[in-house]
């Protein structure tokens, strides 16, 4: 009898904290304000939001998780959309913003109306909002740090950059060069712009290859690894270690090489499921948790041992994705504290 009682008490004790955390936000409604849905990354982002949001609603954690996308990628339209969401009485608005500054007026209106605003990926600078930003510089640096472990002696690097003049390209490249300066033995011997597209990268790499010495590794920004591999193959040169960017074609090629010759590399990018991270952060704030205003998106890194698993979960033509759980979000928050 006493044993049963203890078990029951224990069970209640274990269950209580969980339900207490849930009950506070059970009647809260969260909206996603998204500025653009025209590429595979954004489509995957919306799909993840829908999946995790519906589950959270079904579990009674929140009352609603509705996604709204503006028809055109325009600041004024998104500002109007945010104001409409305020009127619809949402408790939190999660934003992927069309402009870091020009939505601040609407965001301020939302904050003044007592609404929690969480921005991610395309963040807003209004101080009352939370920001979940991507540390692109660290992403570039991580690539070189991985290389320094893999090839301790160093060697010649070919850098494939993204679209010229875009902030993301500058950040990743700066990170790569910082990594090269901090480790020893590596030298960037060539640099081309691949515009984050396989065909452009293939052409650009094929163009610069004849003028280059033997390449130890190729550092990339995502969407360009497969094109680079094709260029090396076409030129009849030994295929170096090429860092991948989580695209389906890149992972497929890597898998083929791994099975054929034990080829080793790593792949890194941002998971579109970061929208679900933002949703949990919003839920945590609504729950009354004290969350730092600036958080960093964790990278989705694929290594030799978890390649198959990630490849199986990636849609053809898509990007490797991961959906965040409440626990993942709490880990990100704790890391920022």
């Amino acid at each position: 009898m006493s044993k049963v009682l203890t078990t029951a008490v224990l069970a209640v004790g274990l269950a209580l904290p969980a339900t207490a955390a849930i009950a506070d936000t059970a009647d809260k409604r969260i909206a996603l304000s998204n500025n653009y849905a025209g590429n595979s990354w954004r489509q995957a982002m919306l799909k993840s939001w829908g999946k995790v949001g519906d589950q959270a609603v079904a579990d009674g954690v929140i009352a609603a998780a509705d996604a709204f996308t503006t028809a055109e990628n325009q600041v004024t339209e998104q500002a109007a959309q945010i104001q409409n969401l305020i009127l619809q009485g949402y408790d939190a608005i999660v934003i992927n913003a069309a402009s870091p500054d020009a939505l601040n007026g609407a965001v301020k209106e939302a904050c003044d109306a007592g609404i929690t605003v969480v921005s991610f990926d395309g963040i807003v600078t209004e101080p009352c909002a939370w920001r979940i930003a991507v540390d692109f510089k660290q992403m570039g640096k991580d690539e070189v740090l991985y290389l320094s472990e893999k090839v301790p002696n160093g060697g010649a690097l070919l850098e494939i950059r993204g679209l010229a003049g875009v902030f993301v390209d500058d950040e990743i490249s700066a990170g790569i060069h910082e990594g090269v300066a901090e480790t020893s033995g590596f030298e960037v011997v060539g640099s081309v712009h691949g515009d984050w597209a396989q065909d452009v990268s293939q052409k650009a790499v094929a163009g610069i290859l004849p003028s280059l010495p033997e390449i130890t590794a190729v550092v990339t920004q995502g969407g360009d690894g497969f094109g680079a591999a094709q260029a090396f193959k076409a030129a009849g040169r030994p295929i170096p270690l090429i860092i991948m960017g989580n695209r389906h074609d890149e992972l497929t090629w890597w898998k083929e090489q791994k099975d054929a010759s034990g080829y080793e590399t790593m792949s890194v990018s941002i998971a579109p499921g970061v929208s679900t991270l933002a949703m949990w952060v919003a839920q945590q704030i609504l729950d009354g948790q004290d969350i730092p205003k600036d958080l960093t998106v964790p990278f989705l890194r694929i290594d030799q041992d978890n390649l198959e698993e990630n490849l199986a979960n990636t849609e053809v033509g898509g990007v490797a994705n991961v959906e965040y759980t409440l626990e993942d979000a709490q880990a990100v928050v704790n890391a920022a504290r």
């Binding site: 055109e72 325009q74 600041v75 004024t76 402009s99 500054d101 020009a102 007026g105």
Partner: peptide
């Protein structure tokens, strides 16, 4: 209303 600007802010107008 927006408190800051963007060169592309009003293309739709």
């Amino acid at each position: 209303l927006t408190t800051s600007a963007d060169a592309n802010i009003a293309l739709r107008y």
